[in-house]
Design a binder for these strands. Structure first.
Length: 565
DNA sequence: TGCGGCTATTG
DNA sequence: CACAATAGCCGCAG
């Protein structure tokens, strides 16, 4: 522990080198205004470049708001999620878990009542006699004095020390995960990237995005009355196809089913892919499908969505999470991860800039080859199109080989993919056993760990219905691949983030296997090469075995829509 | 008012 | 509708 920088209204960053934590050392505390604290952080970053210990992405967000960006961190919440799975990772929970305390009923910051007048222990000690953190300290009581801030920093340092020991133990175990050391670092730093993504936002051209929205729902209504009229008109375009006198609520699936029955279309549900089969049966079906598309844009990706999230600086902002609760993929709110592809024309680089857009080709089967150690599948990964050699090996069409491989990773038990499974088992026994072992383990509720060491919680040995057990098996089987792919992707994104600094290349979007990097025109070629090189480096760093080939499809574009689909 | 079901979008 | 996610609306229970 070297230093801590504190401001009375909230910035608490301990500067800790996890390799050098001395539990007895008292931290140096800088106590000042937020601006002064930020300046201190910037100075330490400049001169020492440490791995900063942080409670969570919140710490990084506070720093960014003060104009300070740091390169590396040990993020207690991120490491907690790796070690123990799940998503919740508040300080009290992380502290309790690493200390072996129960997290079933964590002490809450409940108001004191007659029966709990005086909380036990010393109110100036952040740790209660029962070993839990004091809720009032977690809630902010640590900020009251420099002495308290120092004690709080010591708690953080101790937590980091214990987490680090747990990661080392995991890496050194007989059945361990040596990659866990690297995962702890990359998952931590991914939290910094997420804070930066949320802070900086995605370049969006308001005019272009409004045009894209307008192509579905018409131009922005001038008044509330006009907005209502627009909705009525959209509904009417569908309802005019049914006999007069009967009104149906198009937003109610039950009523839509009745409406379709009136014109002689019988469907078990009203999902688009099913209605597609009946497009020719009656003009109503086509009108309904068009309505659905417009309604979706109007309610979720319309003008209110844009107004709420697009700033005057031309940046569209959502909140980013570095690891979801399941397999550990990055997620984003605000529609950044499920924006209809038709709106991508609104995502445009700023004047004088271009995007480097890159996505990983066939990432999941390649990751499967790597984590399972299947040499045959690794050989297939040498091809630009992995499914081609697999199809040749199985003696089937490429399309069949593809659904078979995907089906194996998803746990599909019916259809064409399942029929080709026997061939996969024969030709790629190591990879298939890897998936089947994960499936079997998950079915009985036993937790799994990804290649990188992330715990995948499977619910414990609670008896469940057969169908539920099968679903758990499919989840476990897929999470081992999806989670490992997420780990590799993050390493790649972080290398791009670090290397990009020198050419002002800024990662502005991460989408599971796709990166969008915003770059000044003059550096865009260099940045594109850098993105490709970063993948090789990421693969080597993530899994030092070089037998599996990873590919990125990289292009330079003005708009996200210009990238080939 | 909260929550499960349905629907649509993305990888 | 195989795996994951976010998100909105409807219908029903409390």
């Amino acid at each position: 522990m070297r230093a801590i920088v504190v401001s009375p209204n909230g910035v608490a960053i301990a500067c800790v080198d996890p390799a050098d934590v001395d539990e007895r050392a008292m931290p140096t505390v800088w106590w000042g205004s937020p601006a002064a604290a930020a300046e201190q952080v910037a100075e330490i970053e400049r001169t020492e470049g440490p791995r900063w210990a942080m409670w969570s992405q919140d710490s990084a967000r506070e720093l960014l708001e003060l104009g300070v960006e740091v390169a590396r961190s040990w993020d207690v919440a991120a490491v907690h999620r790796v070690l123990f799975g799940g998503w919740r990772a508040d300080p009290a929970r992380a502290w309790a878990r690493i200390g072996g305390l129960s997290t079933r009923d964590l002490p809450a910051d409940a108001p004191l009542d007659l029966f709990h007048q005086e909380p036990d222990g010393d109110p100036d000690d952040p740790v209660r006699p029962d070993g839990h953190l004091r809720p009032d300290w977690v809630a902010g009581a640590w900020q009251e004095t420099p002495e308290r801030a120092g004690r709080w920093a010591t708690v953080l340092a101790e937590l980091v020390r214990r987490q680090r020991a747990a990661i080392e133990e995991l890496a050194d175990r007989e059945d361990g995960r040596p990659a866990a050391r690297r995962t702890a670092s990359s998952e931590s730093t991914a939290e910094l990237l997420c804070a930066e993504l949320g802070h900086a936002g995605l370049p969006v051209d308001r005019t272009a995005m409004e045009a894209a929205i307008a192509s579905f729902v018409g131009p922005r209504p001038a008044s509330e009355r006009e907005a209502v009229e627009r909705v009525v008109a959209r509904d009417e375009a569908v309802l005019r196809h049914v006999p007069q006198g009967i009104r149906f609520d198009l937003r109610s699936p039950t009523q839509v089913r009745s409406m379709l029955r009136v014109v002689g279309v019988e469907v078990p549900d009203t999902r688009a892919w099913r209605l597609e089969q009946h497009r020719d049966a009656h003009p109503l079906v086509d009108a309904l499908l068009t309505w659905r598309k417009a309604e979706r844009v109007a309610t979720t990706f319309g003008y209110p969505w844009l107004d709420e999230r697009l700033g005057a600086d031309g940046r569209f902002r959502g909140e980013w999470s570095a690891a979801d609760g399941a397999a550990g993929r990055m997620t984003a709110s605000g529609g950044l991860h499920n924006m209809p592809a038709d709106l991508r024309s609104g995502v445009v680089a700023a004047p004088g800039h271009r995007f480097v857009r890159a996505d990983l080709g066939q990432i999941e089967p390649r990751v499967l080859a790597a984590v399972s150690g299947d040499r045959s599948l690794a050989r297939a990964s040498q091809a630009d199109d992995l499914y081609a050699p697999v199809a040749a090996e199985l003696g089937v069409e490429r399309a069949v080989a593809k659904v078979a491989v995907l089906g194996a990773m998803y746990g599909q038990t019916t259809g064409e993919g399942a029929r080709a499974l026997q061939g996969l088992r024969r030709s790629y026994p190591i990879a298939m056993s890897y998936l089947e072992a994960a499936d079997a383990t998950a079915q009985v509720g036993t937790d799994l760990r990804t290649y990188g060491g992330r715990l995948l919680r499977m619910g414990g040995p609670v008896p469940v219905e057969r169908a539920q057990a099968a679903a758990r098996g499919r989840f476990g089987r897929n999470a081992m691949v999806q989670g490992a792919a997420a780990e590799l992707f993050k390493v790649w994104a972080l290398i791009v983030r670090a290397r990009g600094r020198s050419v002002d290349a800024e990662v502005v979007l991460c989408l599971h296997d796709e990166l969008l990097v915003h770059v000044p025109d003059e550096h865009v070629e260099v940045a594109a090469s850098m993105v490709d090189e970063a993948l090789g480096e990421a693969a080597a760093r993530w899994a030092p075995d070089r037998s599996v080939r990873f590919l990125s499809d990289t292009s330079i574009v003005r708009s996200w829509a210009d990238a080939k689909p």
